[in-house]
Each structure stands twice: as structure tokens, then as C-alpha cells.
């Protein structure tokens, strides 16, 4: 196929596959813990990181990752202060990220085009360096989730019980937020800052419609995300659409399909 003859497309698809695996496996835990907003928050912070990187002339993926890491520590810190209002911690962090991003973007005159690449995602601009960072982050995320699978699952349905069972809940929460931060930072290259959290949330929501076990829901959400990313990238290539938007619309399409099939199936019984 013609599409695979372009080097940038090969890189974009490889990057897409990495993103399509790590976003949903982080997302399913976020959804189950009702922390869906965290993805959005960290992506706003990443935007500030991107602006800082572009202004200062560093690799924007790396600065975005550093900012997201800082933001994740901020969220954890605030969450302990507002333990009963966890969403306040995310809201405060999101606002600070956005404020900082706007200032930094206005400072770095002339870079608006590159900022837009990050805002909406861009497949033409994935560099070898980006790919290398993504592969490293992908490996870290996948291995961490495999190793922490049971404790993370336990915390998702009963945090207090997990504490009593001797699981180091605070440390795991902190580490998981860090994983979320680096996932957001590397994924925005493909889907765009504005849509990263959708790729974490929608496949998870899809899997929860049909999964018959937790393990199945992890697999289904990864399958749904991979299908969306690959189809989205191919469609955006042939029809010159924004890749991020196409990917997300495709994942929504899968969600709607699943819901309709479920309804149909239930009606027949």
C-alpha cells in the first residue's frame, strides 16, 4: 500500500500503536477511580511544557513531559490538602497549566504553527527522537502496569481496603500519576493535547459496556484504541483530515456501535 512507503507515515503508525496501547491501559484505571479529569489536567500542563520547549528551543516532548511530571506532583500534593474534594486539586492544576501555557505561547512569537501541531496532533512531524522517547515511555508504562496490575486494580475498587491489606497506596498513586503524566506528554504528539484524554477515556468506556471481567476490559479497551488510532491515521492520510480528531471520532464511532449492538442484542432476547 502506498501509505506505508512514506517514512513519516511509518513513524506515525509506529507511534500510533504505542499510544494506542498505553493510553487505554492508563485510562481504564483513571475511569474506574473516577479520575477522568486528570488526563485533561495533565494535557493542559503539557501544553505549557510544549510552549516552554518551543520558546527555549528544546525538544518539546521532553519539556512537556517534565511539566506534566511537575503537574502530577502538584495534583498529588493538592489532593492531600483537599482529600474530600479531589477534583479541586485537578481543577487548580489545570488552571495553572493553562495560564502558564498562554503566557509562554504569547512570549514565543512566531511559533504558533508548531504549537498548533501539538494542540491538534500532527503525523508529519514525528521525529526519530520522538519515536525513541515514545518507545521508552511505552515500555515503562506497559511493564509498570503488568507489575502493578493487582494493586492498581485493588485500589480502583477499594482504596481503604487496599491500605489495610498492606498495599503502599500513596506511593502507588503517586507513581501512577507519574505514569499518566508521561503517557499524556508522549501521546499528544499524535492525537493532540486537546484530545489525549479522550483516547484514555473513550476506549475504557467502550470496554465497560461489554467486558465480562476486568482483564477482558483491559484487552477490549486496548483493542478499541488500537483500531481507532490505526484507522484514524489511515483515514486522515487519505482524506487530509486532522489525525487527532479523526482518531477520536473513530473511537466514538466504535463506542456507539458497541452500544447499539448491545441494545439490539438485549432487545432480541
Amino acid at each position: 500500500m502506498e501509505i506505508f512507503e512514506y517514512h513519516f507515515m511509518q513513524r506515525a503508525l509506529t507511534a500510533g500503536i504505542i499510544v494506542g496501547i498505553i493510553c487505554p491501559i492508563i485510562g481504564i484505571f483513571l475511569v474506574l477511580r473516577r479520575l477522568s479529569l486528570i488526563g485533561d489536567t495533565l494535557s493542559h500542563i503539557s501544553l505549557a511544557g510544549v510552549a516552554a520547549g518551543l520558546t527555549a528551543g528544546f525538544n518539546a516532548t521532553i519539556t512537556a513531559m517534565l511539566f506534566a511530571l511537575g503537574g502530577s506532583l502538584g495534583i498529588e500534593y493538592l489532593r492531600r490538602h483537599y482529600s474530600k474534594y479531589a477534583e479541586l486539586a485537578t481543577a487548580i492544576t489545570m488552571s495553572s497549566g493553562m495560564g502558564l501555557a498562554v503566557i509562554l505561547i504569547s512570549l514565543g512569537r512566531g511559533n504558533t504553527a508548531s504549537v498548533l501541531c501539538y494542540l491538534f496532533g500532527s503525523i508529519a512531524s514525528v521525529t526519530k527522537m520522538d519515536l525513541f522517547i515514545m518507545a521508552a515511555v511505552g515500555l515503562i508504562v506497559v511493564v509498570s502496569i503488568i507489575v502493578l496490575y493487582w494493586p492498581l486494580f485493588f485500589i480502583a475498587f477499594d482504596e481503604e481496603g487496599a491500605r489495610i491489606a498492606g498495599i503502599p497506596v500513596n506511593k502507588i498513586n503517586l507513581y501512577f500519576t507519574v505514569l499518566t503524566a508521561i503517557t499524556v506528554a508522549v501521546s499528544m504528539r499524535i492525537v493532540g493535547i486537546l484530545l489525549v484524554s479522550s483516547l484514555m477515556i473513550i476506549p475504557a468506556a467502550t470496554s465497560m459496556q461489554i467486558a465480562k471481567s476486568f482483564k477482558a476490559s483491559v484487552y477490549i479497551s486496548v483493542a478499541a484504541a488500537l483500531l481507532s488510532v490505526v484507522s484514524g491515521l489511515v483515514l486522515s492520510f487519505y482524506f487530509s483530515l486532522a489525525p487527532g480528531g479523526t482518531i477520536i471520532m473513530f473511537s466514538l464511532f466504535i463506542l456507539l456501535l458497541v452500544i447499539s449492538f448491545k441494545k439490539l442484542f438485549a432487545a432480541q432476547k
Partner: peptide, 17 residues
Amino acid sequence: HFPATVREVVGAQASAH
């Protein structure tokens, strides 16, 4: 809507211990 089986929930506890 929590997607977990009875066996998984009890298994998580066993694994923690």
C-alpha cells in the same frame, strides 16, 4: 458498571497478602 468478576475481586485481595 464496575467491570470485574467476583473471582478477580477476591483474587486482588489474595494477591495483596
